[in-house]
Write a protein that binds this DNA or RNA. Structure first.
Lengths: 243, 243
DNA sequence: CGAGCCGTTGAGGGGATTCAAGCTCAGTGG
DNA sequence: CCACTGAGCTTGAATCCCCTCAACGGCTCG
């Protein structure tokens, strides 16, 4: 991954300075571009924030912007034909949201903030224009599509199948990846855990309570948990050999 | 979708003529290109066939080619961490197989012929070279990635969740899409139905037998079935309102 | 013909759902 | 200060659906 700064240090434009202070420069979509192109971008970029639970956009909505996630967690939801809500993926730091609108269509999922989030909103036409000039950007976009496809498979093959206990263990481990350092991890409400793992809220509650009794996790309120990662991995391994 | 012929009619090259007779010209990857570029491609393309059950490539294998599926059905498999086989998607006529190798990585799934299949094998470097010259091709590629992502969601949200009866009904309807005209549809063996729907062989067998008793389908041997599509859709609707 | 693969069917058990009842906790207003 | 309220979480009991284990039948092929 390139370490090129997203925006020039000597700029006097306020948004440019804000962008420069952004920690995402290396990992974000525009990490592949040079300085010259970047100078022309920042004027189009708007910094956006959302509180936990607030929507970013909705499925079917005509989209004219993509988003780079700077901090927090965003979930992608969709409603199945049967009418039940499913969370199909999570986005974390550095992820690109809503890239499907670059092809001219609408957003394909609801995007909702799970925690307080900070994002950069980038007009689609900016990305499209840059893409025709810089094939490297298109390649980066394709990489991100491929990654989304991989994530999607992992999400359903590893999280939404198998015994309930295993699903919850895998989810907790995955949520650990989204947390920075040794901070307590974000714990979704049971209804959302159910929507991720395809379980009822009662089953989720039972499993989480069980893990708490076993001392593998300790909860701080309803939205935070401290996890014993090695123990969780151990428990997961025992699950898999038992089956 | 453009109707430009993939290859020129007046060519004397045998492969070019074979390619010209290809029914995929309009829907295939290169449908977006003009005639001039196409003249330079066909020399690199090899026509490939596989019998039912034969692998096309395997996950992890270093890939140097993508494939356009001309006829038949191909399945993508992967082995989960628990060691069980899952069929994550089907490819039909006109689909592009293995496009992930265009990014330099290995194939991400096993690709196996479900029926006798005919394909065009295209070296990755050809697509990559053309991509730098013709942004339209890159856009087409991104479209296909997005479509794969959509399909992937549908596959798991609609096929691998819910009651067993519903899953089988949805699968039969989907298999109907891959069949041409009113021909009998291809019926996978029970083990593969199980790998698609995340059910056991026995459960699949019971459900299919039940549908047969209800007269919604009639089987011809073990690999073919004739389906009553309206009745199936009706049965599916009844499932959904009951729940 | 026997071996092996595949599909079917039955009986029994287990794990998730369903239904239902409390519980905790924050917010509100008397 | 405290009762009231509602949302979210927990727990229990009964049910149901799918899995597991097992036996058997049809078919192909050596």
């Amino acid at each position: 991954m390139l370490k090129t700064p997203l925006y020039r240090l000597d700029s006097t434009d306020p948004q440019a300075r804000a962008c420069f202070s952004c920690g995402m420069r290396g990992v974000a979509l525009f990490g592949v571009l040079g300085e010259r192109e970047l100078d022309q971008i920042h004027v189009h970029i708007v910094h956006v924030q959302r509180a936990a639970g607030e929507p970013l956009y909705e499925a079917g909505e005509h989209g004219d912007s993509v988003y780079t996630l700077r901090s927090g967690i965003v979930r992608f939801e969709r409603v199945s034909e049967r009418g039940d809500r499913r969370i199909v993926r999570l986005a974390g730091c550095g992820d690109l949201l809503g890239q499907e609108v670059l092809l001219g269509g609408p957003y394909s999922d609801d995007a909702i903030a799970c925690t307080p989030v900070a994002l950069c909103r980038i007009p689609a036409h900016v990305v499209q224009a840059l893409g025709t000039l810089h094939p490297a950007l298109l390649r980066e976009l394709m990489q991100r599509w491929q990654r989304a496809l991989q994530d999607s498979h992992v999400w359903v093959d590893e999280l939404a199948t198998g015994p309930a206990r295993r699903r919850v263990l895998k989810l907790l481990l995955k949520l650990g990846e989204y947390a920075q350092g040794s901070e307590p991890i974000w714990l979704p409400k049971r209804e959302d855990v159910g929507a991720m793992l395809n379980l009822t809220i009662e089953t989720c509650s039972r499993q989480i309570s069980q893990l708490r009794r076993e001392g593998l996790i300790t909860t701080k309120g309803n939205r935070q948990a401290r996890v014993n990662l090695p123990a969780l991995r151990d428990a997961l391994r025992r699950e898999d050999i038992a089956a």
